[in-house]
Amino acid sequence: MELLGYYNYWVFAIVLMVGFYAVIVRNNLIKKLLGLAIFQSAVFLMYITMDKVEGATAPIIQEGVTDQIYSNPLPQVLILTAIVVGVSTTALGLAMVVRIKEAYGSIEEDDIIAKDRKS
């Protein structure tokens, strides 16, 4: 039970590295972007883990309740905006992949490199 307090961080570490593995090993560009999205989500998870306070509720102040403690709002604000920015940048990456597909006829990294070498 004592060690469960770290479980969120362990999941963060594993998911982060799973995403990183997809980015460095997989040849497919869309797979790389999926890996990047996983990587990003892992970072979100770490930030949100840090905002939790034992016995607290979401930081929405209830009127007339004085002894309630609230979780930390700051990491939530940072991550809330980061999620929206994340989807925009993922879309930008996908747009690039679409153009690469049109120019090279493939979204596999080794095909693209081979084609570049030939020309």
Binding site: I48, V53, A58, V84
Partner: peptide
């Protein structure tokens, strides 16, 4: 679960 209702909604 981690008390971040706003972030959960966004995600």
């Amino acid at each position: 679960i981690l008390d971040a209702a706003d972030v959960a909604l966004t995600e």
